[in-house]
Design a protein around this nucleic acid. Sequence first.
DNA 1: GGCCATTGACGAATCGATTTGGCAGTCCCT
DNA 2: AGGGACTGCCAAATCGATTCGTCAATGGCC
Lengths: 341, 341
Amino acid sequence: MRRQTVTLKDVARAANVSPSTASQALSGTGRMTEATRRAVVEAAQKLNYRPNAVAQGLRTGSVRSIGLHHLHAGDRFASDYFREFVTGVLDGTQRADYDLTLLSSNPQVPRNRVPRVDGVIIADPIADDLRARQLLDSGLPVVAGEHPPDGMPDCPVIAADHAGALRQILDRAAAHGVRRPAFVGPDANSGWGVLLRAEFERWCADQGLPGATGESRFGDLSVAEHRRVIGELLAREPATDLLVLSSEPIVQGALTALEAAGRRVGSDVLLACCGDSPTLAMTAPPTTAVDLHPRALGMACAELLIRLVEHDAEPPEAPVLLPAEVRWRASLPGGARVPLG
Amino acid sequence: MRRQTVTLKDVARAANVSPSTASQALSGTGRMTEATRRAVVEAAQKLNYRPNAVAQGLRTGSVRSIGLHHLHAGDRFASDYFREFVTGVLDGTQRADYDLTLLSSNPQVPRNRVPRVDGVIIADPIADDLRARQLLDSGLPVVAGEHPPDGMPDCPVIAADHAGALRQILDRAAAHGVRRPAFVGPDANSGWGVLLRAEFERWCADQGLPGATGESRFGDLSVAEHRRVIGELLAREPATDLLVLSSEPIVQGALTALEAAGRRVGSDVLLACCGDSPTLAMTAPPTTAVDLHPRALGMACAELLIRLVEHDAEPPEAPVLLPAEVRWRASLPGGARVPLG
DNA sequence: GGCCATTGACGAATCGATTTGGCAGTCCCT
DNA sequence: AGGGACTGCCAAATCGATTCGTCAATGGCC
């Protein structure tokens, strides 16, 4: 095993004091003459002493590190959303001088050790994720970014206001004259998908419109699979004049499927996506999408968690909703009414 | 401070054995009857015992976490290179069941504690980064991804074969008839920039060609600034017929500057970039660039570091060079000769 | 029966810090 | 001179695990 090169004991010996005095001298606590304190500080400097964070962590119970758990985090840096989210979290943690630990996250293998962190952020909780469940049961403070699916233990939640943004899109689409809306999003594994689907169906019921829905397997990023799902939906519901999609990867599949079906996006059929990404501004035509401000969301998660960790503050009862903004583009314009059909 | 809910002592009490026996029972070491071992394991399960990784870390000297240090990591997730690099590192660490800790990295403020990690990867070491220096001095095993600049303490290095790729580009450009090559890259802060610049100048000397160079401040991502630098270079050396740029952000500035100067990329002037990114395939015309395989590089760093940490293996003497591939595109075609000028 | 080897379990030390309680010694006041 | 208040410093306990050496009990063998 790797031993510490210089320990507090060495410093104490060099300064001719006891370890306890040395500790107090360096942390600015305790009672002693200025001369003693200086002697210790100088000895520490001369020896290039750096306290062992693990030992400090054991004694004080805080390691100044926040854990970030995300299913398959490895693949997911590809997603703009997650990348921005992490950037936000990192902003928040670094501001408070915490490290950020990306937790090893093979969902199949539960993990033995409790990670050496003060608290955990679970990004995008998924129902069948064993490790997330472990973390929730571990007694560590946890904050979820996005709503956990049903059946997960409760924990404080910070989420974007998906429902509000979705309603804006649907209302606008109704103003454009849409009669046959459809929604495609992930299965029940994702709390976020369930929420969107429920909101979509509620809105359809309110308007007295038939709502068609399709399911994409959560986490599947392949264009081909999404194309298939959308193709089937269009075959089932050929009169569909609005497609609301949960996330950016599905849009690519939808565009292909729509083209194959001879439908023209922005006139024959309107299209919107519940999560934005730079590529959506570059599709032809550009796709209306919801900017979830993932960076702000990540930052908010970090800040809340650090507050919980440091001050044992009361966690918020209800989920905290952060505003989400619709970026209106040609696939479903925000302005003047488009002639449909 | 937050206390552990269930400790080894609790398990031992429940199983009617001493803590030492409990520890040995759970780790499969020591001598005891099968009955005793089972009793301990069952007690641990019933109490939902999870060992405290911090205490384990203190005792064993290993916390199963690798640190990743990168200057301003917060902003840098924007860079495709870094993102891919991190993904590779994450691949490598997760495969060995290590966590990855993104070290808080404000370069101005040196840090007191030695981080709770078994080793550190320094991505893209920069000369005036205090924290990188601290890490190198800390006694922790360190691996650098990319060459550290002169003046940094030695450490094992894994890097892409920049020089080889640059030579391929220059040779190809020479075959196209280039007479006035120019290079723009970061200042001496970056080991990578220094290496590229030196290789460029060596090649020019070998060929008996005059080589012009420009400097971009390292870490500056603004298009306007790069445009200015390239504009000045073009004013100074109007006959320039090849621009080799260190990294992707500079390309945007170069394209603007070249257009303003009325130069046509791919015919009047050839253009290449020493680091690839998806956007470079989408410029007009597409830009020839070097694919540094950042993901493979990150993975290699993680694997080497874990080997060093676990087996106290000998670090490689010389920098390990990973192959880099030139992606030939219209801005400097790899195939038939283009008529220059 | 006497001796040695082996087994099963445990006590105590250890990793490197923090923190509490207390012990001398000094100073001041009456 | 005696008592109280205060100062400067330290010993020891603690955080939660691991590990080494020890020891009593058992078994086998001559």
